[in-house]
Amino acid sequence: MSFVRNLFFSLRRYRFLLRQLVLRDFKVKYKRSVLGVAWSLLYPLLTMSVLALVFSNVFRFSTPGVSYIAYLLIGLTWFNYFSEASNLCMSTIVANFPLINKVYVPKYIFPLSKCLFVGINFLLTLIPLYLVILLTGTGLCWQHLLLPYSFLCLFLFTLGMGFFLAAVSVFLRDMFYIYGIVLSLWMYLTPVMYDIDIITNRPLRFLMSLNPLYQLIRFARTVILSHATPSAAQFAGCAVPALLMLTLGAWVFKKKQDRFVYYM
């Protein structure tokens, strides 16, 4: 219990630092770019156009009954949040060594700030997503109000992964290479660009459905594309892996954080 209380106090004390770190990332990201924040909207639209062009015309992927473009964009938005944020988290401790070595700052604040920073970008990419939802005639429904639940679970899952990666990469720099490979494999194993039903091997399909990111994306697709309320199993499928990952990541990070300074 005292752990939670300490966390609460240090978050209160360092909330100004947290905001400054997020703000810094935002300012640095768009420095010296002419279009600035507009890139947050343009970039996902353009990548999605490329992918939609390739997959619907060259590979002839389609999702019967729903717009393939909307289907693809949901998967991409959710998956990109995870891959970008977790990737940024991984280098936070190593990159902030000079700082950690000079003054005391709670170290968890670095991965947390990255997850929040990419989270703001994520919210911005919802604008092109809703544009696509409207333009493709997918339409809206009251269940959209359930989507923040999926955002929250995605955030917690990514944060847990970020803690884990940030801690491990201090001791094992190979992680930077390994995780790059893991991410691209993960991307193809997650039904982002294709429908999971094209997998005909039943045991394999079952294994793939255990992927937490698939569960998170499926939740969003159920709401946006099918206009349906996700089942209780789907709600649990989002929250359980998120909380497990967060617990694991935070535990590893907390256990190892005092040893970070030795590995500069």
Binding site: R13, F16, R19, L21, R24, L99, V103, V105
Partner: peptide, 10 residues
């Protein structure tokens, strides 16, 4: 930013 790092309030 620097003040935040030192733990000062806004």
């Amino acid at each position: 930013l620097n003040a935040a790092v030192m733990g000062y309030s806004e």
